[in-house]
Design a protein around this nucleic acid. Structure first.
Length: 197
DNA sequence: AATGCGATGGTCT
DNA sequence: GACCATCGCATTT
């Protein structure tokens, strides 16, 4: 299943359709002349009629970006210390989005390492630290320096400091679909997709 | 490798 | 005042 849709068409889909199509896409973070990028390897879908979604009880100041234009960023703060990054999807006003849970860094590993571990990347990288670099939503945000300052940013604008880009087609045989992580409701809805490249 | 738990603060009831 | 779309570390297998 090689997606022939471009990114603009992908994010116009309802979250459960858009989510698996976002696997393998490139997330690019620009800091002046420095770049960190990674390929999306794990996502979850949320939409308004879904009890697990932040938009389930309607629009608030916190979730307003999720009711905004598709292709923009919904970023929230949780557990008193972590930022999580979502790609707003579906038609404007519907409260739908895709949580990016993990990425594989392909550019700027040294910079991502510094952001994540507050230390210079060692010559010999401990394998556990490599595995734990960006394999969770809070870790992705930390490695890419994503916080409130990027709330609502247009991810489809080439000039943005955080943006999405097309990348190589994915091998659909490596995608697995499961229930979402860490929920107290809608625990059986299988709206998590993992790409084990 | 798996499990348990504390940290920590914004958001909503 | 309760609840988190989490993480890292300690403890146990």
């Amino acid at each position: 299943m090689t997606s022939t849709l471009d990114l603009r068409e992908v994010v116009n889909q309802p979250a459960p359709l858009a989510a698996p199509m976002l696997l393998g896409k490139r997330l690019v973070r620009q800091f002046g002349d420095r770049i960190i990028s990674g390929l999306i390897t794990e996502v979850e879908a949320y939409q308004q009629d879904d009890p697990a979604s932040h938009t389930y009880r309607g629009k608030t100041n916190r979730n307003r970006a999720m009711f905004g234009e598709p292709g923009h960023a919904y970023i929230y703060f949780t557990y008193g210390m972590h930022w999580c990054f979502n790609i707003v999807t579906d038609k404007t006003g519907l409260g739908s989005g895709v949580l990016v849970r993990s990425i594989k860094i392909d550019v700027g590993l040294d910079h991502a390492w510094q952001n994540r571990y507050r230390e210079v990347q060692p010559e010999v990288m401990p394998s556990e630290r490599c595995r734990n670099l960006t394999n969770g939503p809070g870790k992705v945000a930390m490695a890419l320096g994503i916080d409130k300052s990027l709330y609502g940013i247009n991810l489809l604008d080439a000039a943005s400091q955080l943006k999405l880009e097309d990348a190589e087609p994915v091998d659909s045989s490596l995608i697995t679909q499961t229930p979402r992580i860490g929920l107290s409701v809608a625990r059986d809805t299988p709206w998590r997709w993992h790409y084990s490249q």
